[in-house]
Design a binder for these strands. Structure first.
Lengths: 218, 218
DNA sequence: GTCTATAGGCCGATAGAC
DNA sequence: GTCTATCGGCCTATAGAC
């Protein structure tokens, strides 16, 4: 089993595009992505991927040397996109509550996407046997958000808007408050589908609790 | 694939004990438990279980008609024990902070056990294909704690110790605050092993944030 | 490059001897 | 009850024709 399945040497942009341009390869990647994210690693066979992609298994193995390698490629290239636009963390905060709700809302809605949940489930499930997988997921997803949020929180503190004794811990608390209830339930595939109302309540409550814990009363 | 894999008709206590008394069966169950919890569902074979248990596959199939059924039995019987002693939620609370830290500490340390984490990972990973699994895990674990905590929180409120507009939501927030940081990292199999200090900081910070959000200033 | 065909092995599950 | 031996099938991966 390939040990270093995820952190692979980055191809140049041109290489990546060229390689991705081959239509059969694209079909393979798309089929594998769909199937892995829908069913996990173990329950998907190379036959199934080849059939879904509309190519033969030999072609599949011409592009990827093993099932592990294909899985690693999918996770490394498709698991990294998180909704971190530059304007998500404004320098000047007029309404702290509204800003927190905006940030939290975007990240919670991203976390609740079927695709994001699928990646999370797979990373968690396979992290024991593919140690790089848990690490790659954490670094590409939660860690990036946490870093930016923590920096932003530091700025807020230097502006006197909040008083946070431990920035990293408060950041993790904010993220955890977002994961409470709705996300936890959905991650276990439990019905019902969360309503817009319930999501907004979670966001509002998280912001409220965070503010009560850390906002400076002015 | 057996649809209703977990919620199976309960045997009488006597039956269960009798069935469990057969030494070969006990060996099978123990081997399966170890292997499933260590490696998940897909990565474990019936050959492996039989070999580990020291019995033949035929014997294994004499006790359990299929791999699914064996898996279901393991999850149903071994996944339910949670640390809910009666005295965990005291009626009279002298020191609210200390009590919250005590409750939170016990539940966090339980959640961080390798065995608990393994069950959590499997429930989450297989919840898509075994819908009953996510439900059973939730009901036997988090839901039971949540119910008791919420009731206890209601008592605190009627005593005027806290002001909680939404008991269920606050309960989920408390649990989420416990899952922040350490648990989230461990669930993805990420090093380092959490230190006692880090665990205690998480607990203290969760209690602190919860108190700031909901405690009544007297 | 892409296919068909198949190797070689492990899978879940079973038949039949004792 | 428990074993040995084995089935048919699907698995990952490859050889060889075009």
């Amino acid at each position: 089993m390939d040990q270093n399945i995820v952190t692979q040497p980055k191809c140049s942009e041109a290489d990546a595009v060229t390689a991705e341009m081959s239509p059969k390869r694209r079909q393979v990647v798309e089929a594998a992505e769909t199937l892995f994210f829908a069913n996990g690693y173990g329950a998907v066979s190379m036959d199934q991927i080849a059939r879904t992609a509309g190519v033969s298994k030999a072609t599949l193995y011409a592009y990827f040397p093993s099932k592990d390698a294909l899985f690693a490629h999918i996770v490394a290239t498709k698991g990294a996109d998180s909704p971190l636009s530059c304007d998500l963390f404004p320098d000047d905060v007029a309404d702290l509550r509204a800003t927190l709700e905006d940030i939290g809302g975007r990240i919670l809605k991203f976390m609740l996407l079927d695709r994001t949940l699928a990646i999370y489930r797979i990373a968690l499930a396979e992290s024991g046997r593919f140690p790089e997988l848990g690490r790659a997921f954490y670094q590409n997803g939660p860690q990036q958000f946490a870093t930016r949020f923590q920096t932003w929180l530091g700025h807020l503190q230097s502006q006197g808007l909040v008083k946070v004794p431990d920035l990293a811990l408060a950041t993790h608390q904010f993220m955890a408050l977002m994961r409470c209830g709705v996300f936890f339930r959905r991650s276990l595939s439990l019905p019902p589908e969360p309503s817009e109302l319930e999501i907004n309540q979670t966001i509002a409550a998280a912001a409220e609790t965070f503010l009560r814990a850390y906002a400076v009363n002015s």
